[in-house]
Write a protein that binds this DNA or RNA. Structure first.
Length: 415
RNA sequence: CGGGAGAUGGCAGAGCGGUUGAAUGCACUGGUCUUGAAAACCAGCGAGGGUCAUACCUCCGGGAGUUCGAAUCUCCCUCUCCCGGCCA
Protein backbone atom coordinates (compact mmCIF):
# COMPACT_ATOMS: atom_id res chain seq x y z
CA UNK A 1 0.00 0.00 0.00
CA UNK A 2 1.12 3.52 -0.66
CA UNK A 3 2.00 5.86 2.17
CA UNK A 4 -1.08 8.12 2.08
CA UNK A 5 0.63 10.93 3.92
CA UNK A 6 3.38 10.87 1.34
CA UNK A 7 0.78 10.90 -1.41
CA UNK A 8 -0.87 14.01 0.00
CA UNK A 9 2.45 15.80 0.47
CA UNK A 10 4.20 14.82 -2.76
CA UNK A 11 1.30 14.22 -5.04
CA UNK A 12 2.91 15.27 -8.32
CA UNK A 13 6.07 13.32 -7.71
CA UNK A 14 4.29 10.12 -6.81
CA UNK A 15 1.75 10.26 -9.59
CA UNK A 16 4.62 10.88 -12.01
CA UNK A 17 6.41 7.79 -10.79
CA UNK A 18 3.25 5.72 -11.04
CA UNK A 19 2.90 6.68 -14.68
CA UNK A 20 5.42 3.93 -15.31
CA UNK A 21 2.72 1.57 -14.15
CA UNK A 22 -0.07 3.22 -16.10
CA UNK A 23 -2.00 4.44 -13.13
CA UNK A 24 -4.71 6.94 -13.82
CA UNK A 25 -3.96 10.27 -12.20
CA UNK A 26 -7.61 10.90 -11.46
CA UNK A 27 -7.74 7.71 -9.42
CA UNK A 28 -4.77 8.89 -7.39
CA UNK A 29 -6.36 12.26 -7.01
CA UNK A 30 -9.56 10.82 -5.62
CA UNK A 31 -7.45 8.79 -3.23
CA UNK A 32 -5.73 11.91 -2.04
CA UNK A 33 -9.00 13.79 -1.71
CA UNK A 34 -10.51 10.93 0.25
CA UNK A 35 -7.64 10.75 2.68
CA UNK A 36 -7.77 14.50 3.31
CA UNK A 37 -11.53 14.40 3.73
CA UNK A 38 -11.23 11.50 6.12
CA UNK A 39 -8.66 13.32 8.19
CA UNK A 40 -10.98 16.32 8.41
CA UNK A 41 -13.97 14.21 9.36
CA UNK A 42 -11.96 12.35 11.95
CA UNK A 43 -10.99 15.60 13.62
CA UNK A 44 -14.68 16.47 13.96
CA UNK A 45 -15.44 13.04 15.33
CA UNK A 46 -12.65 13.18 17.86
CA UNK A 47 -13.75 16.54 19.18
CA UNK A 48 -17.24 15.17 19.74
CA UNK A 49 -15.84 12.06 21.40
CA UNK A 50 -13.63 14.14 23.66
CA UNK A 51 -16.68 16.08 24.81
CA UNK A 52 -18.65 12.93 25.42
CA UNK A 53 -15.81 11.44 27.41
CA UNK A 54 -15.14 14.41 29.62
CA UNK A 55 -18.79 15.18 30.33
CA UNK A 56 -19.63 11.57 31.09
CA UNK A 57 -17.12 11.76 33.86
CA UNK A 58 -19.22 14.45 35.51
CA UNK A 59 -21.98 11.99 36.40
CA UNK A 60 -20.40 10.44 39.48
CA UNK A 61 -19.37 13.92 40.63
CA UNK A 62 -22.88 15.34 40.22
CA UNK A 63 -24.33 12.38 42.06
CA UNK A 64 -21.96 12.78 44.94
CA UNK A 65 -22.92 16.42 45.19
CA UNK A 66 -26.60 15.54 44.91
CA UNK A 67 -26.96 17.61 41.74
CA UNK A 68 -29.57 16.92 39.07
CA UNK A 69 -28.21 15.10 36.00
CA UNK A 70 -31.19 15.42 33.67
CA UNK A 71 -29.87 18.44 31.82
CA UNK A 72 -26.46 16.84 31.36
CA UNK A 73 -27.97 13.60 30.13
CA UNK A 74 -30.07 15.42 27.56
CA UNK A 75 -27.01 17.22 26.29
CA UNK A 76 -25.04 14.02 26.00
CA UNK A 77 -27.86 12.14 24.30
CA UNK A 78 -27.81 14.87 21.73
CA UNK A 79 -24.08 14.69 21.33
CA UNK A 80 -24.26 10.94 20.95
CA UNK A 81 -26.45 11.31 17.90
CA UNK A 82 -23.86 13.53 16.33
CA UNK A 83 -21.14 11.04 17.11
CA UNK A 84 -23.08 8.21 15.53
CA UNK A 85 -23.66 10.19 12.37
CA UNK A 86 -20.07 11.32 12.08
CA UNK A 87 -18.81 7.85 12.81
CA UNK A 88 -20.86 6.43 9.98
CA UNK A 89 -19.49 9.08 7.68
CA UNK A 90 -15.88 8.35 8.58
CA UNK A 91 -16.42 4.63 8.15
CA UNK A 92 -17.84 5.11 4.73
CA UNK A 93 -14.90 7.30 3.76
CA UNK A 94 -12.49 4.77 5.17
CA UNK A 95 -14.08 1.98 3.21
CA UNK A 96 -13.88 3.89 -0.03
CA UNK A 97 -10.33 4.87 0.75
CA UNK A 98 -9.12 1.31 1.29
CA UNK A 99 -11.02 0.06 -1.70
CA UNK A 100 -8.84 2.26 -3.85
CA UNK A 101 -5.65 2.17 -1.82
CA UNK A 102 -5.45 -1.62 -1.85
CA UNK A 103 -5.50 -1.88 -5.64
CA UNK A 104 -2.85 0.71 -6.37
CA UNK A 105 0.49 -0.88 -7.19
CA UNK A 106 3.85 -0.10 -5.67
CA UNK A 107 5.95 2.82 -6.85
CA UNK A 108 8.81 1.73 -9.11
CA UNK A 109 12.32 2.33 -7.83
CA UNK A 110 14.49 5.06 -9.39
CA UNK A 111 16.60 2.42 -11.10
CA UNK A 112 13.64 0.88 -12.93
CA UNK A 113 13.68 1.67 -16.65
CA UNK A 114 10.47 2.96 -18.15
CA UNK A 115 8.74 0.79 -20.70
CA UNK A 116 5.53 -0.90 -21.64
CA UNK A 117 6.22 -4.60 -21.81
CA UNK A 118 8.86 -7.27 -21.49
CA UNK A 119 10.37 -6.01 -24.73
CA UNK A 120 11.57 -2.98 -22.83
CA UNK A 121 13.31 -4.95 -20.11
CA UNK A 122 17.05 -4.52 -19.89
CA UNK A 123 19.49 -7.39 -19.96
CA UNK A 124 22.03 -6.86 -17.20
CA UNK A 125 24.38 -9.70 -18.00
CA UNK A 126 24.78 -13.21 -19.30
CA UNK A 127 26.30 -15.92 -17.17
CA UNK A 128 28.14 -18.96 -18.55
CA UNK A 129 27.83 -19.91 -22.23
CA UNK A 130 25.23 -21.59 -24.34
CA UNK A 131 25.92 -25.29 -24.70
CA UNK A 132 27.03 -26.41 -28.17
CA UNK A 133 25.30 -29.35 -29.83
CA UNK A 134 26.35 -31.23 -32.93
CA UNK A 135 22.74 -32.18 -33.52
CA UNK A 136 19.41 -30.39 -33.42
CA UNK A 137 18.48 -30.04 -29.72
CA UNK A 138 14.95 -31.09 -28.88
CA UNK A 139 12.32 -29.52 -26.69
CA UNK A 140 11.57 -31.14 -23.39
CA UNK A 141 8.32 -32.77 -24.46
CA UNK A 142 10.12 -34.47 -27.34
CA UNK A 143 12.89 -35.62 -25.08
CA UNK A 144 10.34 -37.00 -22.70
CA UNK A 145 9.22 -39.52 -25.28
CA UNK A 146 12.43 -41.35 -24.48
CA UNK A 147 12.80 -40.38 -20.82
CA UNK A 148 9.21 -41.02 -19.75
CA UNK A 149 9.66 -38.69 -16.82
CA UNK A 150 6.52 -36.66 -17.29
CA UNK A 151 3.04 -38.10 -17.74
CA UNK A 152 0.97 -35.27 -19.15
CA UNK A 153 -2.10 -37.33 -20.06
CA UNK A 154 -2.63 -38.86 -16.68
CA UNK A 155 -2.14 -35.50 -14.98
CA UNK A 156 -5.08 -34.24 -17.01
CA UNK A 157 -7.10 -37.33 -16.15
CA UNK A 158 -6.52 -36.81 -12.44
CA UNK A 159 -7.26 -33.11 -12.43
CA UNK A 160 -7.53 -31.10 -15.61
CA UNK A 161 -5.30 -29.52 -18.22
CA UNK A 162 -2.09 -27.93 -16.95
CA UNK A 163 -1.56 -30.70 -14.43
CA UNK A 164 1.07 -33.39 -14.90
CA UNK A 165 2.64 -36.32 -13.14
CA UNK A 166 6.34 -37.01 -12.65
CA UNK A 167 7.53 -40.58 -12.39
CA UNK A 168 10.65 -42.66 -12.10
CA UNK A 169 13.84 -40.64 -12.49
CA UNK A 170 11.73 -37.57 -13.23
CA UNK A 171 10.17 -37.75 -9.78
CA UNK A 172 13.57 -38.48 -8.25
CA UNK A 173 15.07 -35.53 -10.05
CA UNK A 174 12.41 -33.27 -8.63
CA UNK A 175 13.09 -34.52 -5.12
CA UNK A 176 16.84 -34.20 -5.62
CA UNK A 177 16.47 -30.62 -6.84
CA UNK A 178 14.38 -29.63 -3.84
CA UNK A 179 16.96 -30.98 -1.42
CA UNK A 180 19.86 -29.59 -3.39
CA UNK A 181 18.36 -26.11 -3.59
CA UNK A 182 17.40 -25.99 0.08
CA UNK A 183 20.86 -27.15 1.09
CA UNK A 184 22.46 -24.63 -1.23
CA UNK A 185 20.42 -21.78 0.23
CA UNK A 186 21.02 -22.94 3.79
CA UNK A 187 24.75 -22.80 3.16
CA UNK A 188 24.29 -19.22 2.01
CA UNK A 189 22.77 -18.34 5.37
CA UNK A 190 19.05 -18.79 4.69
CA UNK A 191 17.01 -20.54 7.35
CA UNK A 192 14.75 -23.30 6.07
CA UNK A 193 11.06 -23.10 6.98
CA UNK A 194 8.17 -25.39 6.15
CA UNK A 195 4.84 -23.59 5.96
CA UNK A 196 1.15 -24.20 5.15
CA UNK A 197 0.08 -24.32 1.50
CA UNK A 198 -3.28 -22.81 2.42
CA UNK A 199 -3.55 -19.30 3.82
CA UNK A 200 -6.32 -16.94 4.81
CA UNK A 201 -7.55 -13.72 3.28
CA UNK A 202 -5.61 -11.53 5.68
CA UNK A 203 -2.32 -13.08 4.64
CA UNK A 204 -3.05 -12.74 0.94
CA UNK A 205 -4.14 -9.13 1.39
CA UNK A 206 -0.96 -8.34 3.27
CA UNK A 207 1.29 -9.56 0.47
CA UNK A 208 -0.89 -7.97 -2.22
CA UNK A 209 -2.54 -10.91 -4.01
CA UNK A 210 -5.90 -9.76 -2.66
CA UNK A 211 -8.18 -8.01 -3.30
CA UNK A 212 -7.04 -7.37 -6.86
CA UNK A 213 -5.99 -10.83 -8.05
CA UNK A 214 -8.62 -13.09 -6.56
CA UNK A 215 -9.30 -14.59 -10.01
CA UNK A 216 -5.79 -16.03 -10.13
CA UNK A 217 -6.23 -17.98 -6.91
CA UNK A 218 -7.77 -21.33 -6.08
CA UNK A 219 -10.25 -20.74 -3.30
CA UNK A 220 -11.33 -23.37 -0.79
CA UNK A 221 -15.08 -23.68 -1.03
CA UNK A 222 -17.02 -22.42 1.95
CA UNK A 223 -13.94 -20.99 3.69
CA UNK A 224 -12.06 -17.75 3.36
CA UNK A 225 -8.95 -19.78 2.58
CA UNK A 226 -6.92 -20.06 -0.60
CA UNK A 227 -4.17 -22.27 -2.01
CA UNK A 228 -0.96 -20.27 -2.05
CA UNK A 229 0.29 -19.02 -5.42
CA UNK A 230 3.82 -18.73 -3.99
CA UNK A 231 5.66 -19.38 -0.74
CA UNK A 232 6.14 -15.64 -0.52
CA UNK A 233 2.64 -15.44 0.98
CA UNK A 234 3.00 -17.71 4.05
CA UNK A 235 6.67 -16.98 4.63
CA UNK A 236 6.36 -13.18 4.56
CA UNK A 237 3.21 -13.37 6.66
CA UNK A 238 5.11 -15.22 9.35
CA UNK A 239 5.86 -11.76 10.72
CA UNK A 240 2.56 -10.03 10.02
CA UNK A 241 1.48 -7.74 12.89
CA UNK A 242 4.84 -8.10 14.59
CA UNK A 243 7.44 -5.66 15.79
CA UNK A 244 10.85 -7.19 15.21
CA UNK A 245 14.01 -6.56 17.13
CA UNK A 246 16.56 -4.59 15.18
CA UNK A 247 19.32 -7.03 16.05
CA UNK A 248 17.38 -9.89 14.46
CA UNK A 249 17.42 -8.21 11.06
CA UNK A 250 17.93 -9.11 8.34
CA UNK A 251 15.84 -12.27 8.45
CA UNK A 252 16.73 -14.62 5.60
CA UNK A 253 14.45 -17.57 4.92
CA UNK A 254 14.11 -20.29 2.33
CA UNK A 255 11.15 -22.57 1.84
CA UNK A 256 9.96 -25.25 -0.53
CA UNK A 257 6.24 -25.28 -1.30
CA UNK A 258 3.86 -26.26 -3.99
CA UNK A 259 2.36 -23.22 -5.72
CA UNK A 260 -1.12 -23.08 -7.19
CA UNK A 261 -2.21 -20.67 -9.88
CA UNK A 262 -5.34 -20.51 -11.98
CA UNK A 263 -3.43 -18.90 -14.84
CA UNK A 264 -6.64 -17.06 -15.61
CA UNK A 265 -5.09 -14.58 -18.00
CA UNK A 266 -2.91 -17.00 -19.93
CA UNK A 267 -5.35 -19.03 -22.00
CA UNK A 268 -3.56 -20.60 -24.92
CA UNK A 269 -0.10 -19.65 -23.63
CA UNK A 270 2.46 -22.41 -23.07
CA UNK A 271 -0.15 -25.11 -23.29
CA UNK A 272 2.46 -27.60 -24.46
CA UNK A 273 4.83 -29.17 -21.95
CA UNK A 274 5.46 -28.33 -18.35
CA UNK A 275 6.29 -24.63 -18.56
CA UNK A 276 3.02 -23.29 -17.19
CA UNK A 277 1.16 -25.51 -14.72
CA UNK A 278 -1.62 -24.99 -12.22
CA UNK A 279 0.56 -26.64 -9.58
CA UNK A 280 4.32 -26.45 -9.44
CA UNK A 281 7.07 -26.76 -6.88
CA UNK A 282 9.28 -23.85 -6.02
CA UNK A 283 12.04 -23.11 -3.56
CA UNK A 284 11.67 -19.54 -2.44
CA UNK A 285 13.86 -16.95 -0.74
CA UNK A 286 12.24 -14.38 1.53
CA UNK A 287 14.10 -11.62 3.33
CA UNK A 288 13.06 -9.00 5.81
CA UNK A 289 15.45 -6.15 6.32
CA UNK A 290 15.93 -2.62 7.49
CA UNK A 291 15.18 -0.16 4.68
CA UNK A 292 18.81 0.88 4.38
CA UNK A 293 19.93 -2.71 3.76
CA UNK A 294 17.31 -3.89 1.30
CA UNK A 295 19.26 -3.04 -1.85
CA UNK A 296 22.23 -5.05 -0.63
CA UNK A 297 19.99 -7.97 0.36
CA UNK A 298 18.31 -7.78 -3.02
CA UNK A 299 21.66 -8.19 -4.77
CA UNK A 300 22.53 -11.04 -2.47
CA UNK A 301 19.31 -12.83 -3.41
CA UNK A 302 19.94 -12.36 -7.12
CA UNK A 303 23.47 -13.67 -6.64
CA UNK A 304 22.25 -16.68 -4.67
CA UNK A 305 19.74 -17.73 -7.32
CA UNK A 306 22.19 -17.07 -10.14
CA UNK A 307 24.97 -19.03 -8.43
CA UNK A 308 22.56 -21.88 -7.93
CA UNK A 309 21.95 -22.05 -11.68
CA UNK A 310 25.67 -21.75 -12.32
CA UNK A 311 26.33 -24.65 -9.98
CA UNK A 312 24.10 -26.73 -12.27
CA UNK A 313 26.11 -25.37 -15.18
CA UNK A 314 23.07 -23.76 -16.80
CA UNK A 315 23.55 -20.72 -19.00
CA UNK A 316 21.28 -17.84 -17.97
CA UNK A 317 20.89 -14.09 -18.03
CA UNK A 318 19.76 -11.43 -15.59
CA UNK A 319 17.06 -9.06 -16.75
CA UNK A 320 15.99 -5.84 -15.07
CA UNK A 321 12.24 -5.42 -15.49
CA UNK A 322 10.85 -2.18 -16.85
CA UNK A 323 8.00 -0.34 -15.14
CA UNK A 324 5.31 -1.84 -17.36
CA UNK A 325 6.42 -5.41 -16.68
CA UNK A 326 6.81 -4.98 -12.93
CA UNK A 327 4.49 -6.96 -10.69
CA UNK A 328 1.87 -5.32 -8.50
CA UNK A 329 3.84 -5.20 -5.26
CA UNK A 330 7.35 -4.84 -6.60
CA UNK A 331 9.42 -1.67 -6.53
CA UNK A 332 12.17 -3.44 -8.42
CA UNK A 333 12.50 -6.86 -10.00
CA UNK A 334 15.29 -8.84 -11.60
CA UNK A 335 14.24 -11.91 -13.54
CA UNK A 336 16.62 -14.75 -14.16
CA UNK A 337 16.07 -16.39 -17.52
CA UNK A 338 17.58 -19.76 -18.25
CA UNK A 339 18.60 -20.78 -21.74
CA UNK A 340 16.49 -23.52 -23.27
CA UNK A 341 18.32 -24.84 -26.35
CA UNK A 342 15.36 -26.92 -27.51
CA UNK A 343 13.04 -23.92 -27.50
CA UNK A 344 15.97 -21.77 -28.65
CA UNK A 345 15.07 -19.01 -26.21
CA UNK A 346 15.47 -17.78 -22.66
CA UNK A 347 12.68 -18.59 -20.17
CA UNK A 348 12.03 -17.08 -16.77
CA UNK A 349 13.12 -19.46 -14.03
CA UNK A 350 13.35 -16.99 -11.15
CA UNK A 351 12.01 -13.59 -10.29
CA UNK A 352 13.48 -11.58 -7.44
CA UNK A 353 11.68 -8.53 -6.11
CA UNK A 354 12.17 -5.84 -3.55
CA UNK A 355 8.74 -4.64 -2.42
CA UNK A 356 10.33 -2.14 -0.02
CA UNK A 357 7.69 -1.12 2.53
CA UNK A 358 4.70 -1.89 0.26
CA UNK A 359 3.91 -5.25 1.83
CA UNK A 360 5.24 -4.22 5.22
CA UNK A 361 2.67 -1.43 5.43
CA UNK A 362 -0.17 -3.79 4.56
CA UNK A 363 1.17 -6.51 6.85
CA UNK A 364 2.22 -4.14 9.65
CA UNK A 365 5.69 -5.63 9.90
CA UNK A 366 7.86 -3.19 11.81
CA UNK A 367 11.08 -3.10 13.74
CA UNK A 368 12.17 -1.02 16.70
CA UNK A 369 14.58 1.61 15.51
CA UNK A 370 15.73 2.91 18.86
CA UNK A 371 12.54 4.32 20.27
CA UNK A 372 10.48 4.42 17.09
CA UNK A 373 8.73 1.65 15.22
CA UNK A 374 9.54 1.71 11.53
CA UNK A 375 8.33 -0.40 8.61
CA UNK A 376 10.73 -3.04 7.35
CA UNK A 377 11.44 -3.87 3.73
CA UNK A 378 10.35 -7.25 2.42
CA UNK A 379 11.93 -9.11 -0.48
CA UNK A 380 11.18 -12.36 -2.21
CA UNK A 381 12.59 -14.43 -5.02
CA UNK A 382 12.57 -17.90 -6.45
CA UNK A 383 15.57 -20.11 -6.22
CA UNK A 384 14.28 -21.81 -8.22
CA UNK A 385 11.05 -23.00 -9.86
CA UNK A 386 11.50 -26.77 -9.80
CA UNK A 387 9.54 -27.73 -12.91
CA UNK A 388 11.33 -25.24 -15.10
CA UNK A 389 14.67 -26.37 -13.70
CA UNK A 390 13.83 -29.92 -14.74
CA UNK A 391 13.02 -28.63 -18.22
CA UNK A 392 16.27 -26.69 -18.31
CA UNK A 393 18.25 -29.78 -17.30
CA UNK A 394 16.48 -31.90 -19.90
CA UNK A 395 17.13 -29.47 -22.72
CA UNK A 396 20.68 -28.54 -21.74
CA UNK A 397 21.91 -31.99 -20.77
CA UNK A 398 20.42 -33.88 -23.71
CA UNK A 399 22.50 -36.28 -25.75
CA UNK A 400 22.30 -37.11 -29.43
CA UNK A 401 20.53 -40.37 -28.63
CA UNK A 402 17.83 -38.54 -26.72
CA UNK A 403 19.06 -39.46 -23.27
CA UNK A 404 19.46 -36.81 -20.59
CA UNK A 405 22.47 -36.69 -18.26
CA UNK A 406 22.23 -35.65 -14.62
CA UNK A 407 24.23 -32.57 -13.57
CA UNK A 408 27.34 -33.37 -11.52
CA UNK A 409 26.13 -31.31 -8.58
CA UNK A 410 23.04 -33.51 -8.25
CA UNK A 411 24.79 -36.86 -8.39
CA UNK A 412 25.04 -37.10 -4.63
CA UNK A 413 21.31 -36.35 -4.39
CA UNK A 414 20.10 -39.06 -6.74
CA UNK A 415 20.48 -42.62 -5.63
C1' C B 1 -17.78 -33.81 14.52
C1' G B 2 -19.96 -33.94 20.07
C1' G B 3 -19.17 -32.01 25.55
C1' G B 4 -16.56 -28.37 28.84
C1' A B 5 -13.18 -24.02 29.79
C1' G B 6 -11.06 -19.71 28.10
C1' A B 7 -9.20 -15.26 24.92
C1' U B 8 -6.23 -8.60 28.70
C1' G B 9 0.54 -5.28 27.09
C1' G B 10 7.03 -9.33 24.85
C1' C B 11 5.55 -13.34 28.52
C1' A B 12 2.83 -14.52 33.06
C1' G B 13 -1.35 -12.59 35.38
C1' A B 14 -5.14 -8.86 38.28
C1' G B 15 -9.16 -6.07 36.92
C1' C B 16 -16.86 -3.59 41.76
C1' G B 17 -20.30 -0.40 34.73
C1' G B 18 -17.49 5.67 36.31
C1' U B 19 -10.21 9.97 36.49
C1' U B 20 -8.09 2.04 34.27
C1' G B 21 -4.64 2.24 28.57
C1' A B 22 -5.16 -1.02 32.36
C1' A B 23 -2.46 -3.55 39.26
C1' U B 24 1.53 -7.01 40.05
C1' G B 25 5.65 -10.23 38.62
C1' C B 26 9.23 -11.49 34.83
C1' A B 27 11.76 -9.69 30.66
C1' C B 28 13.73 -5.21 28.55
C1' U B 29 16.13 0.04 28.67
C1' G B 30 18.63 4.00 31.44
C1' G B 31 20.84 5.44 36.20
C1' U B 32 23.15 4.71 41.28
C1' C B 33 26.52 1.38 43.64
C1' U B 34 31.05 -1.78 41.95
C1' U B 35 37.86 -2.43 39.44
C1' G B 36 34.18 -5.21 36.45
C1' A B 37 29.92 -8.32 36.76
C1' A B 38 25.93 -10.09 39.76
C1' A B 39 22.70 -8.54 43.54
C1' A B 40 20.22 -4.38 45.50
C1' C B 41 17.95 0.31 44.81
C1' C B 42 15.77 4.38 41.62
C1' A B 43 13.50 5.59 36.96
C1' G B 44 11.38 4.31 32.28
C1' C B 45 8.88 0.72 29.43
C1' G B 46 2.01 -1.54 24.52
C1' A B 47 0.12 -0.05 19.50
C1' G B 48 -2.10 3.26 15.83
C1' G B 49 -3.70 8.23 14.66
C1' G B 50 -3.08 13.44 15.73
C1' U B 51 0.18 17.79 17.12
C1' C B 52 6.15 21.86 16.05
C1' A B 53 5.41 19.78 20.86
C1' U B 54 1.39 19.20 24.19
C1' A B 55 -3.68 18.30 24.28
C1' C B 56 -6.90 14.87 22.33
C1' C B 57 -8.98 10.23 19.78
C1' U B 58 -9.00 4.81 18.95
C1' C B 59 -7.57 -0.21 20.41
C1' C B 60 -8.25 -5.36 26.33
C1' G B 61 -9.68 -11.89 19.94
C1' G B 62 -13.49 -9.81 15.83
C1' G B 63 -18.45 -7.75 15.03
C1' A B 64 -23.29 -5.93 16.80
C1' G B 65 -26.01 -4.06 21.07
C1' U B 66 -27.43 -1.91 26.19
C1' U B 67 -25.66 2.79 28.78
C1' C B 68 -24.56 9.64 29.85
C1' G B 69 -20.27 6.16 30.51
C1' A B 70 -18.12 -0.88 28.82
C1' A B 71 -11.89 -4.61 29.43
C1' U B 72 -16.15 -5.18 32.79
C1' C B 73 -23.36 -6.50 30.94
C1' U B 74 -26.12 -9.03 26.37
C1' C B 75 -25.95 -11.46 21.47
C1' C B 76 -23.26 -13.44 17.15
C1' C B 77 -18.60 -15.03 15.02
C1' U B 78 -13.54 -16.65 15.21
C1' C B 79 -9.66 -18.86 17.63
C1' U B 80 -7.16 -21.62 21.67
C1' C B 81 -7.04 -25.38 25.51
C1' C B 82 -9.09 -29.96 27.97
C1' C B 83 -12.38 -34.62 27.39
C1' G B 84 -14.63 -37.99 23.72
C1' G B 85 -15.12 -39.69 18.46
C1' C B 86 -12.50 -39.99 13.67
C1' C B 87 -7.83 -39.95 11.31
C1' A B 88 -2.20 -39.23 8.49
Amino acid sequence: MLDLKELANNFEEISDKLKKKNIDKTLLNSLKELSLKLKEEKAVLETLQAEQNSKSKLFPIYKKEGKDTDELKKELDNNKDKITKTLLKTRELEERLFEIALVIPNIPDESVPSGESEDDNIEIKKILNKPVFDFEPKEHWDLDKKQQWIDFERGVKLSKSRFSVLKGDGAKLERALVNYMLDFNTQRGFCEVSVPFITNKESLTATGQLPKFEDDLFKIEGESLYLIPTAEVPVTNLYRDEILKEENLPIKLTSHTACFRKEAGSAGKDTRGMIRQHQFGKVELVCISKPADSEEIFNLMVKTASDLLSSLNLHHRLVLLCGGDLGFGAAKTVDIEVWLPGQNRYREISSISNTKDFQARRAKIRYKDGKKNRLVHTLNGSSLAIGRTIIAIMENYQQSDGRVLIPKALEAYIR
